[in-house]
Structure formats: C-alpha cells, structure tokens
C-alpha cells in the first residue's frame, strides 16, 4: 500500500512537471542568421520537394492557400530612395509552449520527446483551431485532396518522397523539421548504439540554403552548432520558463525569437540582421 502511494506520489510529481522539458532526448532547434539570409527562396522549394507539398495553382494561390510549409516574409520599409527590404524565413517554430497544441481536441498535434511540435495527419479531424491559434501562421490546410486534383500529375508523382505521406483532404499540416530525416538519423544512431551527432540531421531547407543562413541541431547539447550560434548556456532549459527573453540569457547579441512577448517559447532562434538605420536592440 505504501509502495503504491509512493509510486502515485512520484507519478503525480512527474505529471505535474510542465511539458516534460528536462526529460527530452533531444531539443531540436534551428538558428536563422538573418544577416546571411538573402531571401532567395531556395529553402521553400527544397521543402516542397522533400515533403510532398502539392502545388495548388494560380487560382488557389490567389486565395492564399499555398501549401508551402515555410515562406520568406519580406518587409519593405521607407520610401524611395531610402528603401530597406528585410527578409525573414518563417517556419513552424516548434514552440515549447505551442498554442496550437492546446487547441487540438483530438491530440493530433502535441509535443514529442524530441522537443518537436508534431502533427499526426491521420488523427486530424480538421477543426482549424491549431492554425487559428498559431501566431506565426505556419500551419497549412489540405483544402482538397490535391493528389486527385492533379497536383502530382503523372509522372510528377514519381518524385514523391516515400518517407513522407501524401496528405488527403481535410488535414492540417505544417513544417516537421523534416522529422523523417530525424527518424532516419536516429535509426542509424541506434544501429551504432550512439546518440545522433551534431550535423547529422539536416532538414531540407537547411541543406539547400546557398548562403548557409540556417543551422539545425540539438539545443540540449551545449557543443552543438546551434547552441554556440544561439550563445546559450549549457543548461538552456530556462529558455522555456515563462517570460524568458532570449536576449537576457544569450551571449550572442544578435539572438532573438520571433514575437517573443507572446510567450510561445519558439525554438527557432533568429540572429538579427546587421543593418543601417534604427536598431531594435533592447526593445522591452
């Protein structure tokens, strides 16, 4: 009886631990160096090629229904001739406190042990709530069964990546950090009985980036490329605590997170662009 109670108490403690942070195997994160990013869009097409996202055509594009899992946002500031154009690639930030996760009534989206915010397509019933709750607008919906609509017209379907399912109508989808590559790398690592090495997992967008603006890796590992670029201390868990600003703990003066004050704790870390004109440092 006492053993049972102890076990229950222990369980209770675990179950009251917010989000299981410290028990994650990996904490996949991406660092985007905006000073390197040129806005060319290679990553967008690479993503589309890797993840079987359909092409929706002119009509649907005009309605704002492109299915690219990532996009390059562009902001044009100032008037001619003092025009400044800024680019920012936006993908699913795999927020630690993802607003989308709480929204889904059927657990189609949740946080897994790798710190990923994942979407289970075949569980989705299409309530749109996750996409509505997402502050970054990175969730995409399958408005039609695009396969039937001719988006993968033969022989274009020969290209479809067999490691990624082709989604059907009524399903929400989003950037997965190329989870199929993570799965493959973990599979390899398991064969060799080791952890996944830094740089072993490269999502399609990171791989394609000509100017090497994107870096992907494990934030749990203090020696990884991303941890160094983000300038994070060895135990970055408190990044996930509420109200933590990256600027306060990062050694990199350029590190920031998109819409940080929303407290979604995104795991995509941007490095500020170096640019003449007004600086947005220390904006509190």
């Amino acid at each position: 009886m006492a053993g049972f109670l102890d076990r229950l108490l222990e369980r209770f403690k675990i179950y009251r631990e917010p989000g299981y942070y410290k028990r994650y195997d990996y904490w996949w994160a991406m660092v985007v160096d905006l000073d390197r990013c040129t806005g060319c869009g290679a990553c967008v097409t690479a993503c589309q090629a890797e993840n079987n996202t359909p092409v929706v055509g002119e009509e649907e594009s005009g309605k704002g229904r492109v299915l690219n899992w990532m996009r390059i946002e562009r902001y044009v500031e100032g008037e001619y001739p003092d025009v400044k154009v800024k680019f920012i690639p936006v993908f699913c930030a795999h927020c630690d406190k993802a607003p989308c996760e709480v929204a889904c009534p059927v657990y189609a989206t949740y946080h897994n042990q790798d710190g990923l915010n994942v979407q289970v397509y075949n569980r989705c019933v299409g309530t749109f709530t996750c996409a509505t709750y997402c502050p970054y607008d990175v969730r995409r919906f399958n408005w039609f069964t695009y396969k039937d609509k001719g988006s993968f017209e033969s022989p274009l379907d020969e290209q479809l990546n067999p490691d990624v399912t082709v989604r059907t109508m009524g399903v929400m989808e989003k950037c997965t950090f190329c989870i199929q590559r993570i799965v493959a790398a973990k599979d390899r690592a398991k064969d060799e009985n080791r952890k996944v090495r830094d740089g072993e997992v490269i999502p399609a967008c990171v791989q394609s980036c000509p100017s090497k603006a994107l870096t992907f890796g494990d934030l749990n590992d203090p020696n990884s490329q991303v941890s160094k670029l983000a300038g994070l201390p060895a135990e970055p868990y408190y990044l996930r605590e509420s109200g933590s600003k990256l600027a306060k703990i990062s050694k990199n003066p350029r590190a920031y997170r998109l819409l940080e004050d929303l407290n979604a704790a995104p795991t995509i870390i941007y490095l500020k662009r170096v640019m003449k004109g007004s600086s947005t440092i220390g904006h509190e």
Partner: peptide, 15 residues
C-alpha cells in the same frame, strides 16, 4: 485519460 496516454502540450503538465 491524460495519464493513460501522455502527450505533452503547451508546456502544460500532464495533469
């Protein structure tokens, strides 16, 4: 049901 099938979300505890 939360304890039966643990799927962490939103930085929230299971319970």
């Amino acid at each position: 049901t939360a304890a039966l099938y643990i799927l962490p979300r939103f930085g929230k505890p299971v319970w």
